[in-house]
Amino acid sequence: MQINLEQPILAKNDALAQENRALFAEKHVFVLNILASPGSGKTSTILATIEALRDEFNIAVIEGDIASSVDSEKIKAQGIAAVQINTGGACHLESNMIRKALDVLDLDALDLILLENVGNLVCPTDFDLGENAKVMILSVPEGDDKPLKYPGVFQVAEAVVLNKVDTMPVFNFNEEAFTEAVRQLNPQAPIFRMAATTGEGVDEWAEWLAEKIRAVQ
C-alpha cells in the first residue's frame, strides 16, 4: 500500500521556528543568525557590533558551541546578557535550542538578539531558527574561493561580512574574484569590508543592521 506524506523532513524544526518568529515579532525583537567558520571572527564581530549599537539598543547574545562557555564569558564581560548553548557535538543550532535559551532572556526589554551559530559553513544553512535574517562572515585568511566551495551559506545570507581586511596584504586574497562569485550566488546581498578588532568598516555594517532593527520596533 502506498501512503502519500508530502511532509517536510524538518517539519518539527520549522514549526518551532515559526513559533519563535511569532514571539520575536510580538516582542519587537530583531534576531540575527550569524553563520561562519571557526576562527573567522564571529565573537569579535559580535563584540564590535555591541560596541557600535549598545547606546541605541538593548542587546543579548545566544552563543552556540559544541562545548565550553568561552564565548559567552567574553560577552558577559562587556555587561551584555549572554546565554551559552552547548550542542554536545551537533554541528548546528536547531529551533528548540533557541526556544529554551529564550526562557532566560527578558524579551520585553530587548531590541536585538545576536545568535552565534556553531562554526560551520554547511549544516546551519538548512535550519530555520525563527530569525529575522541570516548573515555570514568570511575572514580573509580563509581564502577568496569559499563562495565556490560553500555556495549554500552565501545564498541564505542577507549580507556578507568580509572580516580581517587588515590582513589582506599578507594573504593572497583576490577580492575581485570573491566579490564576483558572491554576486553570482546572491546578487542582492551587500558585502561589508571590516576588521572587527581594529574597528575598520564597523560603522557601515552597524548602520545597515540598525536600520533593520528600527524597522521591527
Partner: peptide
C-alpha cells in the same frame, strides 16, 4: 539580479510503500 527561487530547496518525504 532580482530573482526568486521556485525550486531546489526541497527537503520532503513524498511517499512510502
Amino acid at each position: 539580479p532580482f530573482t526568486e527561487l521556485i525550486a531546489g530547496k526541497e527537503m520532503q518525504i513524498d511517499s512510502i510503500e
